[in-house]
Structure formats: structure tokens, C-alpha cells
Amino acid sequence: MINKIVQSMAEAMAGIRDGSVVLIGGFGSIGQPNALIEGLIEQGAKDLTVVANNSGVGHVGLAALLETGRVRKIICSFPRTADPVVFEKLWREGRIELECVPQGTMAERMRAAGAGIPAFFTPTAVGTKLAAGKEERTINGRRYILEEALYGDVALVEAWEADRWGNLTYKSSARNFNPVMATAAKLTIVQTQHIVELGALDAEKVVTPGIYVERVLYVPYGEPTVT
């Protein structure tokens, strides 16, 4: 019997190595798997590269992970939030490397990773400083730059419902980067608000099929309190 549901945070975090590339879902705090991030802090892996849209609010969640000093580099579209104190301090002190990537390029680089596409041409960022050093080609009269797939060793995902096969649904705009990150990592770890029986999810409405998911942890925390 396949059962991806794990019983403890330690089990969920087992085997995450130093130097890993960790994809973390969420747009701001919505859809950000804060319990798993706390688990990763507890687990202790270091020298990490984190891929996330933002850079953390206050001193919780992603910001708390950055504050441990175990994140060497963050790949991010918008390292600003209502309260980006931790990231700003690390960045000013030169203690974290930042790769600023246009949001759609970041999403597509992970989609490509999950879909077996090593690189793609995109019109986004052509002629800007974010295209510096990138291969450019003109196709049918329009300029494009080459962007490479972005693979994760680990993805931390927040779902709304999950079953023991790892089939997932999401809640409203908390879907955001979570499904595409689930496809792009070797080890996808999910925290979910609800665990349901196999067969309870409408097959027509499953967003992430279980093939992309390795571990599911039940974390019923209620509603997000910050955006």
C-alpha cells in the first residue's frame, strides 16, 4: 500500500542535505509552508540555496530561515515585503547572495525543470540588465534570451487537501508557486490543512497528481494571519 503521509516533522525533513536547492512555495505569506520551514530550521541543513518569490516578512517563516545564516543564496523575483528586515540586513552585510529573476521567468524555469526542458527562449528581460551575459537570439524578427531550467533538490509545498497517494488541492490564491515547485524537485514535501481518504478528492479537481509528491505532513493551522 502506498502511503506518503508521515507522522512527524523529523520524518518529513529526513535526508535534506547541506548545499541543497530548496524551492519554497508562497506569494508573500499566502501559500508559504511555514511549518515545514520551521522543520527545516530544526533539521539544521545549511549552505542552502532557496528559491522563493519573496524574501520573508518580519522574523517568521522564510525570514526565520534566512536569520539562521544557513541560506547562502536566494533566487527571488521580489525580495521586498511589508517588513523585509532580515533579508535587507543580510544583503547589506554581504552575507547572502541574491539572484533577482523576473517572476514569470522564475516560474517557467521551474516548469521547464519539471517537464524535461533544459532551457528555453523568452522575450522577458530582453534589453535589460537582467539579460546581461545571457545568450540572445532573434526568432521571426523578435529578440529572446535563453533561460535555463531551475531544478530543486527539495520543494516545500503548502496544500489544502491531500490523500495518501499525495494528490493535492490548493486554496484560492495560495496555489501560486506550489504546484510548479512540486514538479521541479527530486523530493517534494507537503504540509496540508486536511488529510482525506483516497478517492475522496474529485479526480477532475486534483491540481497536483501524487506522482510529484514524496511526503505529506498534516498541519492544520487554520488561516494565515499576514499577507
Binding site: 506569494f27 517572476q103 516560474a107 521551474m110 486554496k171
Partner: peptide, 28 residues
């Protein structure tokens, strides 16, 4: 709905007929 924000991270609503998609589809 505390799960529903816009790009400016403000709470919003979904109109009748509205739909959700993930980020790669949104930017596609």
C-alpha cells in the same frame, strides 16, 4: 477570504465566473 490576495498583497474577492491558476500558467 484570507487565502485570496492580489499582486499588491491586499485582500480581494473573486467575481462570479472567476478562476485560479498556478504561477507558471499565470505567466504563460
Amino acid at each position: 477570504n484570507r487565502w485570496l490576495i492580489n499582486a499588491g498583497k491586499q485582500y480581494i474577492t473573486l467575481r462570479t465566473g472567476g478562476s485560479y491558476m498556478h504561477h507558471a500558467d499565470s505567466f504563460a
